[in-house]
């Protein structure tokens, strides 16, 4: 079982971002997804910077993947997408159908790209179609349950690596609107890059003070931290190939270490979850894996 570090969903200052990935060179992680997937206004690192980080991590023995932006709106978004697809060195995670088109057409279509979690691939017919177009890894939509993932895998006639979202606040929704700018009564075009102040996004609570969601620019995340640390035996039994850990403001390295130790049988799963709890920015949840509301924290009987 490989551990993958998902793309950084937040907007951190340049030095923090570079320091974070410098740490990842020595972290127990096999695959690192890089690039800005949420907001085209985020420029602390531009594509050449990401490519430099990619070289460093590759030299450290990591498999590096460049992730494309989820919501593509402007011609300038498309230009960035084309540059990512044509990078020539690294595999690409396609996060919208425009990326799929660019990867799978032209003179030299890519034969080993990654079908990202926002492509809405929910059945084997659809996944086979992407396999025929060159996808060799599928990241399941976070809302899919264990049973649904198993059924899809069983029905698939192709070799395909399966990656699931195993740890982090769930990326639940994307919008043309920026909710961080809205919170500050700013317009998106003049947002003053307020996201830089929030390493884990902005907490949103119900009117009775219960944590519910997290505002992260145009993305809305769960407040609770989805983690499958307590479900690892079942996860392993499904034959999943990669577990995605989503970067959090602090303690990502420790989380990765706990995952690795638990997968290697050095700590029992219940202890792994227990050890991780003080390192999370909020309470845990795992409902989606169990076919329940995502917010639920479910401990199977």
């Amino acid at each position: 079982m490989k551990i993958a570090l998902g793309p950084l969903l937040y907007y951190w200052p340049r030095q923090s971002t570079l320091a974070f990935y410098a740490d990842m060179a020595d972290a127990p992680v096999d695959v690192v997804y890089l690039g800005e997937t949420v907001c085209s206004r985020r420029h602390e690192l531009r594509l050449p910077d990401w490519l430099e980080v990619a070289e460093i991590l590759t030299a450290a023995g990591k498999e590096v993947v460049l992730s494309s932006q989820v919501l593509v709106e402007s011609e300038s978004d498309l230009k960035t997408l084309r540059r990512i697809v044509a990078n020539g060195s690294f595999r690409v995670e396609a996060n919208d159908m425009g990326a799929v088109r660019l990867l799978s057409s032209g003179d030299a279509p890519a034969r080993n790209w990654i079908a990202g979690p926002t492509l809405n691939i929910f059945n084997p017919t659809t996944l086979s179609l992407f396999a025929d177009l060159g996808a060799t890894r599928w990241v399941a939509p976070p809302e899919m349950s264990r049973d649904q993932i198993r059924a899809l895998r069983d029905g698939l006639g192709h070799n395909m690596e399966v990656e699931i979202f195993a740890h982090g606040r769930l990326p639940l929704a994307y919008s043309a609107r920026c909710f961080t700018a809205r919170h500050y009564n700013l317009q998106k075009d003049t947002c003053e890059f307020r996201c830089l102040q929030f390493a884990d996004g902005i907490p949103l609570k119900t009117r009775e003070g219960a944590p519910f969601l997290t505002l992260n620019g145009i993305q809305t995340q769960s407040a609770q931290v989805h983690t499958l640390l307590g479900d690892l035996p079942a996860v392993c039994a499904e034959g999943v190939d990669l577990l995605r850990v989503s970067p959090q403001g602090q303690h990502t390295l420790e989380i990765l270490q706990i995952f690795r130790q638990a997968l290697d049988g050095l700590i029992p799963p219940a202890d792994a979850l227990h050890e991780a709890l003080p390192l999370l920015p909020a309470e845990p949840c795992n409902g989606f894996w169990h076919g329940r509301p995502g917010v639920d924290q479910h401990i199977p009987a």
Partner: peptide, 9 residues
């Protein structure tokens, strides 16, 4: 097509 808020809740 890119909203799982209802699924989450």
């Amino acid at each position: 097509g890119r909203c799982a808020l209802s699924a989450y809740a």
